[in-house]
Write a protein that binds this DNA or RNA. Structure first.
Length: 596
DNA sequence: TGTGTCTGCCCC
DNA sequence: ATTCTGC
DNA sequence: GCAGAATGGGCAGACACA
């Protein structure tokens, strides 16, 4: 009589040659990764790695990287961090692109679709701890990396850099939430507390090490003996990871990288207006309430990029058509895309989002939206024309080319101003015509990629203010863990003694926040996972950029870009503004912004 | 099938 | 988007 | 002065779940 026993993993490896082949065979025979993981007591993440053809290249332990992270976190000065990074980049047992991505905390350019929700689930699954306790720890520590390191049990470090790196890179292939949860929880189960801290932070795209990408750039520049400015420029043109990994090729090769249409460039940004920073004559243009768009055209090819470099041409076909009308062989044009009604009046920003947020749409849906929300553009700069880079040219000269290339109806309207009086005259006219404000530009300034400069200044009006009351204080995260960091505000009902919420405000100095917290705790009347509810008695004057209709708040209105101007200790809850005033303010803005 | 939650180097 | 903060 | 880190409003899409 022979005893029949199921084949062990060892048997199967012998039969199929490698564990990778075994996994492939089992998947083809209809087993799920979960089945295999359970049957052979193998971590789920490893099964997924083998399914994707994972081949370990180096045996460097991930714990060697977490030690570097720990040292970087401890170092205060920029110079110290740079030296530590330099040491890390000198390691020869890891490839440069892996090191660069580990240093930047960005393992892949694809969306991981992992946020706090999934991390919480994975931590519960990995440790058996109740969600409530995980959430409580999150309130205390303000960040899931630290929470993970609290919850994961110490063990001998055995994860390799390769495993962790590849395990993160394959996450976009895991479509279902439960697959991602299993994947991450198995990774965390096999990690030490320190490893768990940094795995979670890598997954959330935030290492919290307090250095800038500029520091990474200069460390690499130093190591390979190339000018940091050159490396920065190359990175601005071809992307950060791509640029930094080119450093070993040397200065000559780096200098060959040229701007070309089709390759996103980080746009220049503006500061808030300061009269002392304007040099006249200045170029002053309307500021349209839309979305930034960088138009690339070469021959019959067009690419559109949002402010952060997301490609948008498939959902904005009318802008592609406009670009085809540009009088150029090739060009890169900087503009604002805005939503307009059938009569050409500006539509509120909310409408535009229905067009600019989606990355792709079924043709029928796109057609429908194109009918509902029409688009146009207002161009204000040109960075490249027919093979020539215009960045270093003064704005005054770039504009000459812009006017030749872009038809007048698609140009941002503006004037050259000789002095502040003319500037203010134009600004007031802009407000009267329903614009968001104006941008003031130095006519002699070059276009500085990815920088916020004082050569571009934006002026926006102070809107009305609303007196409202704090009804809830919300816990802070990250470095504000353990503190309150924002407030839920409410206005009165005109008749009844009821309060209606209108939105949240934050961005108060730490000192103010600290002095308020004891007061808030004294008037606490309840709590939930986000924060504490308080007796409505702290009154504040709040301003905003726009009032929007919403289902999110009980008043039916929300403030866009809200901010506290001052606390009104002279006012009581009975004296704050009511919902009627909010409604009046809401309707008033459409006298300025006519909507069809 | 409808509603709710989460995520997005989203857009501002 | 805005604001604060540390370098 | 700068960039990073905290925070606000919105929307769509993709799942999860009932």
């Amino acid at each position: 009589m022979t005893l029949v026993r199921p084949p062990t993993l060892r048997d199967l490896i012998k039969a199929y040659g490698s564990i990778e082949e075994v996994v492939k065979h089992l998947i083809n025979s209809g087993f799920t990764p979960e089945d295999i993981s359970w049957k052979f007591k193998l971590p789920y993440y490893l099964i997924r790695l083998y399914m994707e053809g994972f081949k370990p290249r180096s045996r460097v332990l991930f714990s060697t990287v977490t030690k570097v992270y720990d040292r970087l976190a401890l170092l205060r000065s920029r110079r110290g961090k740079e030296t530590e990074l330099l040491k890390f980049f000198k390691r020869e047992d890891l490839s440069l692109d892996v090191k660069v991505r580990l240093a930047l905390g960005r393992i892949t350019d694809e969306n991981l679709k992992i946020g706090e929700g999934i991390i919480e689930k994975a931590l519960c699954a990995a440790t058996g701890v109740a969600p409530k306790r995980v959430r409580d720890l999150f309130i205390d520590y303000g960040e899931y990396g630290e929470v993970a390191s609290m919850l994961i049990r110490p063990k001998e470090p055995k994860l390799t850099v390769d495993e962790v790196y590849e395990a993160i890179r394959i996450i976009p292939k895991l479509e279902r939430v439960y697959e991602r949860v299993l994947h991450i929880s198995s990774l965390l189960q096999n990690s030490t507390p320190d490893e768990a801290r940094y795995i979670v932070r890598l997954l959330l795209n935030d290492l919290k090490l307090g250095y800038r990408q500029e520091t990474v750039t200069s460390a690499i520049a130093r190591l390979y003996g190339v000018p940091a400015e050159l490396l920065e420029r190359v990175s601005a043109i071809i992307g950060l990871v791509e640029g930094l990994t080119m450093a070993p090729k040397g200065e000559a090769e780096l200098s060959k990288i040229r701007i070309r249409p089709g390759q996103f460039l980080k746009p220049q940004l503006a500061h808030i207006y300061d009269p002392d920073k304007v040099s006249y004559p200045a170029r002053v243009e309307y500021k349209y309430d839309g979305s930034r768009l960088q138009i690339h055209r070469w021959g019959s090819q067009v690419r559109l990029f949002s402010r952060r470099g997301i490609e948008k041409s498939s959902t904005l076909p009318e802008v592609v058509d406009i670009a085809m009308g540009f009088k150029a062989q090739s060009c890169i044009v900087d503009c604002e895309v805005i939503a307009v009604g059938e009569d050409g009046t500006f539509l509120p920003f909310q409408y535009l989002l229905e067009r600019t947020v989606p990355r792709e749409l079924p043709t029928e849906e796109l057609r429908e939206r194109m009918r509902k929300v029409r688009l146009t553009i207002k161009a204000f700069d040109i960075l490249y024309l027919n093979g020539v880079v215009l960045l270093d040219m003064p704005l005054r000269e770039r504009r000459r080319f812009l006017l030749e290339v872009v038809p007048a109806e698609y140009l941002a309207e503006g004037v050259d101003c000789e002095d502040e009086v003319a500037l203010m005259r134009f600004y007031n006219e802009a407000l009267k015509r329903g614009l968001e404000g104006v941008i003031v530009k130095d006519l002699n300034s070059p276009y500085e990629l990815g920088r916020r400069t004082y050569t571009w200044l934006k002026i926006k009006p102070e809107r009305d203010t609303v007196d409202c009351v704090i009804v809830k204080a919300l816990y802070g995260k990250g470095k504000r863990a353990g503190l309150y960091s924002s407030f839920l505000m409410a206005v009165r009902d005109p008749k009844e003694r009821k309060l209606y919420t209108i939105g949240k405000v934050s961005n108060l100095p730490d000192e103010v926040m600290a002095s308020l917290s004891s007061k808030l705790e004294r008037i606490k009347i309840g709590e939930d996972k986000e924060g504490i509810y308080v007796k409505p008695m702290i009154v504040a004057e709040v301003t905003y950029q726009e009032i929007q209709e919403t289902d999110e708040y009980t008043s039916g209105y929300a403030l866009r870009v809200p901010k506290i101007i001052r606390f009104r200790e002279d006012k009581t809850v009975e004296e704050i503004d009511d919902v009627d005033k909010l409604r009046r303010l809401y309707e008033l803005q459409y006298e300025r912004y006519p909507v069809k």
